[in-house]
Amino acid sequence: MKKVFERPRLLKPATFHFCPGCGHNILHRVIAEVMEESDFRDRAIMIAPVGCAVLSYFYLDIDVTEAPHGRCTAVATGIKRAIPNSLVLTYQGDGDLASIGAGETLHAAGRGEKVTTVYVNNTNYGMTGGQMAPTTMINQPTTTCSAGRNPEKDGYPLDLSKILSTLPGVCYVERVALTSPANVMKFKKALRKAFQYQTEGLGYSLIEVLSACPTNWKLSPVDSLKWIEEVMAKAYPPGVLVDRKAE
């Protein structure tokens, strides 16, 4: 019988700690799949953030280090400068990347560091229990803005991908909504492209993923996906924000 589906070899035989319906489950699997292609794994060094995704090293059979909260792209810079032909991947949530690590992200991108970031945007701080994030949308309630984000008081959401896409050191930014098998394949294609661009030395690449957080959104997994498409994707429209090679 022909085998049509199997567990990626690089996904360790461990049970994910992520909540049902969380996007991290899928993303880890896809990263494992892409790493298996080409010689990516042989060269890969991944940087895990602080947040729900910190335990990546329990799931992926590649070299992984933790970074202090927000400092992934600074750590990535150190790794890449030490081993220029390595394949460096940072995996960060929106709190890690766009709030506490906004400075490090902006400057690594500004320098055009040849590293790739998977930016998982779920509009809240998942691990700490659903507080307001820089990506929390106007009127969206969280545990630290229970009446909904009020720009007067809480300020406006930050679309860091959009800002980064304007920088000359950034070669590729794409936003994907993780809502359907077709969209999962879009992420896979984007990740492959980002790794390719990194290998070619084109600059900094980032894929933002609009990812479900059913637990903190207080929605079912299925309703969460609907919410991404109907609400979140309006504020953060999916698509290629910049692709310097295609230009």
Partner: peptide, 19 residues
């Protein structure tokens, strides 16, 4: 690398040391 801050600098050190 001239880092953007000492915070970034020490974390670049962390990354390089990890290799």
């Amino acid at each position: 690398v001239q880092a953007e801050s000492e915070l970034a600098a020490i974390n670049m050190v962390l990354g390089a040391a990890a290799t």
